[in-house]
Write a protein that binds this DNA or RNA. Sequence first.
DNA 1: TCTCCTTTTTAGAATGATTCTAATTTCATT
DNA 2: AATGAAATTAGAATCATTCTAAAAAGGAGA
Lengths: 120, 120
Amino acid sequence: MTKYVKKICEIVEQSYSHMTAEQVFQALRQVYPTVVLATVYNNLNRLCDMGLIRRVTQEGMPDRYDRIQRHDHLVCKQCGKLLDVDLTDLTEQFQKQVGVPILAYDLKLMYICEDCKNKK
Amino acid sequence: MTKYVKKICEIVEQSYSHMTAEQVFQALRQVYPTVVLATVYNNLNRLCDMGLIRRVTQEGMPDRYDRIQRHDHLVCKQCGKLLDVDLTDLTEQFQKQVGVPILAYDLKLMYICEDCKNKK
DNA sequence: TCTCCTTTTTAGAATGATTCTAATTTCATT
DNA sequence: AATGAAATTAGAATCATTCTAAAAAGGAGA
């Protein structure tokens, strides 16, 4: 656990904004001005592998990083904006239905956000 | 609806293998040997916009294209292999829980496939 | 059939997020 | 102080995808 790993983990966990690697980099630079983007990528990968943060992959945009605590996402179909939602955990139910051990699941609910609804 | 759009749509719908753009391109070349990759991308995008096929985005690998008929996916956490599963449609339930109109949802169940389990 | 206009296709360059490589630095341990 | 392992760095490389501008194809009317 280097200072970079620790700080990056903090940044991701404390932000509820699903930051991109670039944004994490900018935030980290406030504290460690000499750090380099590759280090951020390295450590984000490391943290994902360790299961301390999770990666959110969405079509047409860079990956985002999110706290690990179980929750699902509302995704605007127009602009891609991401919102957290707390739905009940369905792992058990899914596992029963498919008959193999489910380690986790990734659920995205597509909708049209207020901004996009108004723009139309 | 050009011949390319039509054929690409057919290829994607009839393959249950979640093809990449490159794979669709290879398949299309069997029929139209002079076609170009950019055309495949153009038309895959068009078909997605029209809602005739859907894109499956997964971390660390090129996008795949899938028939539109409602179904969910089992994803191997190790190798990324994709399997179709037919779970009950939960749109209604989710919509009630979040209180906004849900247009669709994207559900991926993470597991470890037999191959990867054995490799360990 | 010829003309005009729109849409599609093409070739190839450009983009951009992410990874890779090899060198350097850091850090813990002896 | 010396060794070795792990982390960081700079910068090049990768690769899926998009973009650009030009060429080709298609379709509707005269």
